[in-house]
Computed example of a mutant assay.
Amino acid sequence: MTVERILPSDEAYELLGLTREIAEGELVPRAAPYEERGEFPRDVLRTIGRAGLLGLPYPEADGGGGQPYEVYLQVLETLATSWVAIAEAVSVHTLSCFPVAAYGTERQRKSLPDMLGGDLLGAYCLSEPQGGSDAASLTTRAVRDTDEYVVTGTKAWITHGGHADFYNIFCRTGGPGAAGISCLLADATTPGLLPQPPERTMGLRSSAPAQIVLDGARVPVDRLVGEEGGGFRIAMQALDAGRLGIAACAVGLAQAALDQAAAYAKERTQFGKPIAAFQGVGFMLADMATQIAAARALMLAAARLKDAGRPYSAEAAKAKLFATDTAMKVTTDAVQVLGGSGYVSDYPVERYFREAKVLQIVEGTNQIQRLVIARSLTRD
Rank of each mutant, 00 (worst) to 15 (best):
A263Y: 06
R296I: 01
V225H: 04
Q270M: 10
G226F: 12
G252A: 00
A301D: 15
G242E: 03
M288K: 05
R310V: 01
I275G: 06
E267F: 05
I234V: 11
Q255G: 05
I292T: 01
A265S: 10
F232W: 06
A263G: 09
G226N: 10
D287I: 09
D307I: 00
D307G: 05
A256H: 10
A254V: 11
P274R: 05
A265P: 07
D240H: 03
A254N: 11
A294D: 15
D307W: 02
A250E: 04
A238Y: 00
E228W: 04
G245A: 06
L258I: 08
G245V: 09
K306R: 13
M284K: 14
R304H: 09
Q255H: 07
A301L: 04
G229A: 03
K273E: 15
G226P: 12
A293I: 01
P311A: 07
E227D: 15
P311F: 02
M236K: 01
G282S: 15
Q279W: 14
M288H: 07
A261H: 02
F283G: 09
A238G: 15
A263L: 10
A247L: 04
Q291Y: 10
L300W: 05
V225G: 07
M299T: 13
L244Q: 09
A241Y: 15
A256W: 05
G309Q: 08
G226S: 11
Q279E: 15
A263Q: 10
Q260G: 04
R296P: 01
M236H: 01
L253R: 07
R310F: 00
A289S: 12
A235P: 01
R310M: 00
G282T: 11
Y264N: 02
A265H: 07
C249Q: 05
G280E: 14
F283K: 14
V281P: 09
Q279H: 14
F232S: 00
G226E: 10
L224T: 00
F232Y: 15
F283R: 15
A302H: 04
A289I: 00
E227I: 10
Q237F: 02
A295P: 05
A294Q: 15
F271S: 10
A301S: 12
R304E: 13
A248P: 03
L298H: 08
V251T: 04
I246F: 11
Q279M: 15
V251R: 01
A247D: 03
A295G: 04
G231Y: 02
M299E: 11
M288R: 03
A248R: 03
A295I: 01
I275M: 03
T290E: 13
A295C: 05
A241S: 13
D287Y: 11
Y312A: 15
G280D: 14
I234Q: 12
T290D: 08
Y312V: 08
Q255N: 06
G229P: 04
A238W: 00
A293G: 10
C249G: 06
A302G: 05
G229K: 02
M299S: 09
Q260D: 09
I246E: 04
